[in-house]
């Protein structure tokens, strides 16, 4: 067992977990925060993307212990008191989601993409989201959402 402590969505959390506990399981099971999803077992689908120290991480590929002392943000932690994060709002306005399962990872990946590249082209968005699979939307409206989210984040 290992004691793991870090900041989760701005709150300090700590728990004793088996050494091999993945970050995603720590978040979903130990912390009962189920917005982050698991869609595969090969780090391919991106449903589990969270931010560790403001960088996108597939949380199924990182041990919880490796997050010790860091700041972790999940989909539950990005909305502001006065409403949705601009990227969440952009997905809503542009119908960038259907079943919603890939959405948390997609939004988290999109936010980091825009932080790295505030004015991404369509091609840059498509290449930037290559690590996140969506089976519902055909990506057309996700690309539109990220373009709109980038504009809103820049305002």
């Amino acid at each position: 067992m290992t004691t793991v402590s870090f900041s989760l969505n701005g709150k300090q959390v700590s728990a004793d977990v088996p050494d091999n506990t993945l970050l995603v399981n720590f978040i979903r099971e130990t912390m009962s925060m189920t917005g982050t999803h698991v869609g595969c077992d090969t780090s391919q689908c991106g449903a589990c993307v969270v931010h560790v120290e403001c960088e996108s991480v597939k949380s199924c590929t990182m041990l919880a212990a490796a997050a010790e002392g860091t700041s972790v943000t999940t989909i539950e932690g990005i909305a502001h008191d006065d409403g949705l994060h601009p990227m969440q709002q952009a997905f809503h306005e542009n119908h960038g989601l259907q079943c919603g399962f890939c959405t948390p990872g997609m939004v988290m990946a999109a936010i980091e993409l825009v932080k790295e590249n505030p004015d991404p082209s369509e091609t840059e968005i498509r290449e930037g989201l290559e690590g996140n699979i969506c089976r519902c939307t055909g990506y057309h409206n996700i690309v539109k959402s990220v373009q709109a989210g980038a504009r809103m984040m820049g305002e």
Binding site: T34, T74, I75, G100, T103
Partner: peptide
């Protein structure tokens, strides 16, 4: 009309079986 169900999915509040 923008979807009524979006907010719960966008904020991580969806309730899937494994949740």
């Amino acid at each position: 009309l923008r979807r009524k169900e979006d907010k719960r999915f966008l904020t991580g509040s969806g309730r899937y079986t494994d949740d």
